[in-house]
Simulated scan of single mutants.
Amino acid sequence: MKTSDFYYDLPQELIAQTPLERRDASRLMTLRRTDGALEHHHFYELPDFLRPGDCLILNDSRVLPARLLGQRLPGGGACEVLLLIDRGNKTWECLVRPGRKMKPGTRLSFGNGELMAEVTEELPGGNRLVRFDYDGIFLEVLEHLGKMPLPPYIKEELQDQERYQTVYSKVLGSAAAPTAGLHFTPELLEKIAAMGVGIGYVTLHVGLGTFRPVKEEDIESHPMHSEYCVISQETADLINRTRAAGGRCICVGTTSCRTLESFAREDGHMEPSAGWTDIFIYPGYKFKVMDGLVTNFHLPESTLIMLVSAFAGREHILHAYEEAVKERYRFFSFGDAMFLY
């Protein structure tokens, strides 16, 4: 299949720049996979589409305030460092700006010297290894000095950093939010649990590769980024019990989907697991465990629109997106949601 098979035309003004005041007030388009039937709802109506005996699987990863603004030493020129992967020994793989002035040996200062660093290596592709020097606990220093690494299509400054975290976020490590979960409130989750829907959590630390465009004309040539994920015994048991009793396994977000599909056996049985995944799901993929998906609207020609097309059919998805543009839905991270079932 060609990358251009997943293109759609999106007016810039439909890219949501800020979150709605109420998380669950966003719109919810439902898409039935069997025939492509669409309906328009609001996210707080999601329980109407769930059944007692289903399970809902959410990604509890929490976004690191991983964007650091500082100065290069000596001289004081401005720099920006975005933490991507913890490589151990106080060293992180990072995106840096300005790249041409951040050669190995460059020293950096953040927060008037509260956090110091040195670029130690330039990696193929342009990322850098950066070794940090600080007192205390690095995550606490980050909470103090770091900013939220919003996606490149969001130009507005975020007023409340917690609005780029899900209400159930727990395990620090993502470079971007698992945004399908941003619509949930504690009250909505309580209502869903009270219906008899099991709620389970996985952890997948979202990498910035999720925003990387597919540049190859043939999608199968695209090198997929790796992300670290974990499935607990408790969540594996919940999924296995749900499926054995005839319930549906519904993933919240493509990250939860990729986690389950990476580690499920061919028959859909789950075991507790942890490790890196670079699973690339596109049309032709046979889903082993996922029966429904709550997701946002994704970028044209992205790996994520390919994933939802694999689940609901490319023609159905492109028609739904065309309808969403016509109905002025809000797109991407702070935008509206879909329920595919």
Rank of each mutant, 00 (worst) to 15 (best):
H225W: 11
H225S: 07
H225G: 13
H225C: 10
S226H: 10
E227Q: 09
Y228W: 15
Y228R: 14
C229L: 11
C229I: 12
C229M: 13
C229G: 15
V230P: 05
E234A: 13
E234W: 05
A236S: 07
A236T: 05
D237Q: 10
D237M: 11
D237K: 12
D237I: 06
L238W: 06
I239R: 02
I239P: 02
N240A: 09
N240V: 11
R241E: 12
R241H: 09
T242F: 03
R243H: 09
A244V: 05
A245L: 11
G246C: 05
G247W: 02
G247L: 04
G247D: 04
R248Y: 09
R248H: 06
C249A: 14
C249M: 04
C249W: 01
I250K: 00
I250H: 00
I250W: 00
C251I: 00
G253R: 04
T255K: 03
T255C: 04
S256P: 09
S256T: 05
C257H: 03
C257L: 15
C257Q: 06
C257V: 13
R258V: 09
L260S: 02
L260A: 04
E261I: 10
E261P: 07
A264N: 07
A264G: 08
R265I: 07
R265M: 12
R265S: 12
E266A: 15
G268N: 00
H269E: 12
M270Q: 06
P272G: 06
P272W: 03
S273F: 12
A274H: 11
A274Y: 11
G275Q: 08
G275M: 06
G275F: 08
W276A: 13
T277F: 03
T277Q: 04
I279S: 09
F280Q: 08
F280L: 07
F280D: 07
F280T: 05
F280Y: 14
I281E: 03
Y282R: 14
Y282H: 15
Y282A: 13
Y282F: 15
Y282E: 10
P283Y: 14
G284Y: 14
Y285A: 12
K286A: 15
K286R: 15
F287V: 11
K288Y: 11
M290P: 10
M290A: 15
M290C: 15
M290V: 15
D291T: 11
D291C: 11
G292K: 00
G292S: 00
L293E: 04
L293P: 08
V294T: 01
F297M: 11
L299G: 01
L299S: 07
L299A: 12
P300D: 01
E301G: 09
E301R: 14
E301C: 14
T303F: 06
T303P: 08
L304M: 06
L304K: 02
I305V: 14
I305G: 01
M306L: 10
M306T: 02
V308N: 04
S309V: 00
F311N: 00
F311W: 02
F311R: 01
A312M: 01
A312H: 00
E315N: 11
I317G: 00
I317W: 01
L318D: 04
L318N: 04
H319P: 04
Y321Q: 09
Y321N: 05
E322T: 13
E323I: 06
A324W: 04
A324C: 11
A324G: 10
V325S: 12
V325L: 13
V325K: 09
V325D: 13
K326T: 09
K326V: 06
E327H: 14
E327S: 13
Y329N: 05
Y329L: 04
